[in-house]
């Protein structure tokens, strides 16, 4: 199967994402942000980095990149879309996921490995995980402090759209285990249809043991498996245009 990785000017984790797919034995294609079609794609990744220099707000300008029309259409048709770090911020600004990011609570850019608990396994990117499984994943962000108004957070919780949370190694939420101040220690969420997922940690940078962890493999491996057995597939474009 094929992951299409969108490259924005300022993306810096695009090749990491493509390499992570190859490590799993899957295909990856880099798609330039000025393209208007994704081409062959079973899943789409919006990678980490600083798209368009993070001018105005993180992800704010990327939503105007020509490729985003095709990404929104792919998402609308039920295709699996993963936004990692800056890619998550782009999905928020594009309105494909609810909420927004503000500066980390302590202002610091946090670059370290943290435990991340998988709370829901019925998304294309967590389907191979065990509920409550704790992954050892790197974070690298200055604006990963997830915020949404209380009613939105309430509906995310009620609809089980909080997919990843910052916890300690045992999976417990503690005062010290939230690295950026995110509301409800949210590290990642999905949309109502559950095919679009965004998270701040970088699973693609933790796919081989020499990199410090290979816990991240399960995120893309989940997608590969879910797509192969037909659980998460984009409907053909013609059916969606009605």
């Amino acid at each position: 199967m094929t992951f299409a990785v969108v490259v924005f000017p300022g993306s810096n984790s695009d090749r990491d994402a493509a390499e992570a797919a190859r490590v799993l034995g899957e295909r990856a294609r880099l798609v330039w942000h000025k393209d208007t079609e994704l081409g062959e794609a079973d899943a789409v990744i919006l990678p980490g980095g600083f798209a368009h220099g993070d001018y105005l707000r993180t992800g704010a300008i990327a939503r105007f990149s020509p490729i985003m029309g095709a990404v929104a259409d792919f998402a609308e048709r039920g295709g699996p879309v993963l936004g990692i770090c800056n890619g998550f911020q782009v999905l928020l600004e594009a309105g494909l996921l609810p909420g927004a990011m503000v500066r980390n609570r302590d202002i610091k850019f946090r670059c370290e490995f943290v435990p991340v608990r998988v709370d829901q396994v019925d998304t294309p990117f967590t389907s191979a995980c065990a509920p409550g499984q704790v992954l050892h994943l790197p974070i690298a962000h200055g604006e990963g402090n997830y915020y949404a108004p209380p009613d939105v957070v309430e509906s995310l919780e009620a609809n089980r759209q909080v997919i990843f949370r910052y916890t300690d190694r045992s999976g417990a939420m503690t005062e010290g285990s939230n690295p950026n101040g995110s509301v409800h220690a949210i590290a990642g969420i999905c949309n109502a249809a559950r095919n679009v997922v965004g998270l701040m940690p970088h699973p693609e940078r933790a796919c081989e043991a020499p990199l410090g962890s290979d816990d991240g493999r399960i995120v893309l491996a989940s997608a590969a498996e879910a797509i192969r057995d037909g659980r998460f597939r984009a409907r053909p474009a013609a059916a969606a245009s009605r």
Binding site: V102, R103, N104, R105, D106, I107, N145, Y147, P149, G181
Partner: peptide, 13 residues
């Protein structure tokens, strides 16, 4: 500006 309900870490610093 950030809404009053949103914590402003930069302003605090």
């Amino acid at each position: 500006t950030l809404k009053p309900s949103v914590f402003d870490p930069q302003g605090r610093v």
